[in-house]
Amino acid sequence: MNLIKCTPLFLLLAILFGSCEGEVLPKPKAFLRLDYPAPKYAKVQSDCPYAFEKNELAIIDPKQNCWMNLDYPALNGTLHLSYIPITNNLNKLLEDVQKLTYEHAVKADAIDPTVYENKEQNVYGMVYEVSGNAASQAQFYVTDSIHHFLTGSLYFNVRPNYDSIYPAVNYIKKDIRKLVESLEWKN
C-alpha cells in the first residue's frame, strides 16, 4: 500500500526535474565569414607582348611562350593565362575558347557572357561567368583581332562546390575584370 501512495509523488517529481532544461530550439545555420584583403593592383611588365595590372595577392608563375599562371595561394585557386599570336587563325581561336567554356555547361547552372570593348587600347573580348559546380568558374579572352590573343581560365584546387568557393570566386572575378580593363598590347 505504501508503494501505491509513493508512485504518483515519484512521477510528479520526475516530471518537474526533467522539464527544467528550458525550451529546445534548433540551432540557427552558421555562415562562414571570409574576409579577404582589399586588392592592391600593380602593373605587370614582362618581355611578353602584353601588360596588365594584377592583384598583389596573386603570384606570377611564368610558363613558356608568354603563358603564365596567376596563383592565389590564400584562395587555393589559379588563373591560367595563355597567349597565342594571331596568324590567320582568329576564327579557330575564338571557336576553341567558346568550346572550352561551354564544355562546363554540363555542370554549370548558368554561363553569362559579357562583351568587353576598349577602342582606345584596341582590346576586344568576352568574359564568361560560370555559376554552379563547374570545374572553371570564369573564362575570358581578349584580342586586338590582328596580332594578339590572350585567354584566361579560373580553376580552384578543390572539388567544385559552388557554395563553398563562392566568396573566392567573386574576389578573383573582380581581379579578372581589372586585368581585362587594364590590358595593353605592346608593339
Rank of each mutant, 00 (worst) to 15 (best):
C20D: 09
S182W: 04
I60F: 01
K43T: 15
C20P: 01
L79N: 01
V24G: 03
Y36I: 07
R177N: 15
M68G: 02
G18L: 07
R33H: 13
S164C: 06
V97F: 00
S153G: 09
T7N: 05
V127N: 05
V130Y: 00
Q45A: 14
P8G: 07
N65L: 10
C6W: 14
L75K: 07
Q121H: 13
Y83R: 05
D144Q: 06
N122P: 02
D35V: 14
A14I: 07
V130K: 01
L100K: 13
A105Q: 15
Y41F: 15
F10E: 06
E181N: 06
G125K: 02
L93N: 05
C66S: 05
A42N: 13
N65H: 08
S46H: 09
Y162D: 09
W67K: 13
P160E: 03
K99P: 03
V97H: 00
V142P: 01
Y171T: 08
K107A: 15
Y36D: 05
T7I: 15
H104S: 15
L57R: 05
K27E: 14
S19P: 00
K40Q: 14
H148A: 08
A30L: 14
N187C: 04
V115G: 06
N118R: 03
E120C: 08
K5P: 02
T101Y: 04
A168L: 07
I111R: 02
K40I: 14
S182L: 02
N170S: 11
S82H: 13
K27G: 06
T114D: 11
Y41G: 03
D47C: 12
P85N: 09
F52E: 00
E129I: 12
L90C: 07
T143A: 06
N161L: 12
N65E: 09
P73L: 03
P39R: 11
S19L: 08
L70Q: 00
A51L: 12
A14F: 10
L13F: 15
R177H: 15
R33W: 09
T78A: 10
F52R: 02
R159M: 14
E117T: 10
C66V: 04
P49S: 09
L90V: 08
L34I: 13
